[in-house]
């Protein structure tokens, strides 16, 4: 079933977290502490490695009991959930992650069962795929543009808005010259960095009902 929608890939990974009673703090808490300090701006590992539109990492402590008359049951392991909406294909995406941000991957997944490290690319890919769940239904609002295309489009939208505002009422010859110059200058601009202009992490409004 569809891990892919258009050219975008919906990656879902559940990695069992080590359950070592001697570890202090426990491995799941070490993961959470690491994630709490991980940047979300252009210095994020997901910004530095190419291809991630949106991604989340979640420690799943247990399944949820919804109340009687359903049965109460519990997981025997906690899981690190990695949900990524990225440019495909999968091998290219994971390879880019392993090559660009191996330290962050190792810092996280070293708390998970059987993680071989990012340095051994073949083992890393095999591990990630062994933890992958097939997405049953994947929806993407824009499914036919890569991340660089989307970042470029947002930059163009911003620049065109300014241009249209600044050149109202200009005579045709002057307007044409301005537009040609504007288009040439815009083509030379590097696309904005992924994750840039993210609000500072101090805005923490997590919780159910905000």
């Amino acid at each position: 079933m569809p891990n892919q929608n258009g050219i975008l890939y919906g990656l879902t990974i559940l990695s069992p977290i080590l359950n070592d009673e001697r570890a202090t703090p426990s491995h799941d808490l070490q993961i959470r502490a690491f994630l709490a300090a991980l940047p979300t701006d252009e210095t994020s590992p997901f910004a530095r490695a190419p291809g991630t539109h949106l991604a989340r990492l979640v420690v799943m402590d247990d399944v949820i009991y919804v109340g009687a008359p359903s049965c109460e049951e519990h997981l025997k392991s906690k899981y690190l959930v990695f949900e990524s909406n990225c440019d495909g294909p999968l091998d290219t995406y994971l390879t880019n992650l392993a090559r660009t941000v191996p330290e962050q991957l190792d810092a996280l997944w070293s708390h998970c069962v059987g993680y071989p490290g990012a340095a051994n690319l073949a083992a890393f890919l095999a591990y990630m795929k062994s933890c992958q769940l097939d997405t049953t239904f994947f929806f993407a609002a824009v499914n036919d543009r890569t991340l660089p295309q989307s970042l470029l489009a947002l930059q163009t939208q911003h620049a065109v808005t300014r241009f249209v505002t600044d050149h109202q009422g200009e005579d045709p010859a002057s307007l044409q010259r301005s537009f040609v110059n504007f288009a040439a200058n815009l083509a030379k601009q590097p696309p904005p960095l992924a994750g840039s202009s993210a609000p500072p992490r101090a805005i923490k409004t997590g919780g159910h009902n905000e």
Partner: peptide, 8 residues
């Protein structure tokens, strides 16, 4: 625990 978007 961690949430990233390329175009925040």
């Amino acid at each position: 625990d961690y949430y990233y978007t390329a175009y925040p």
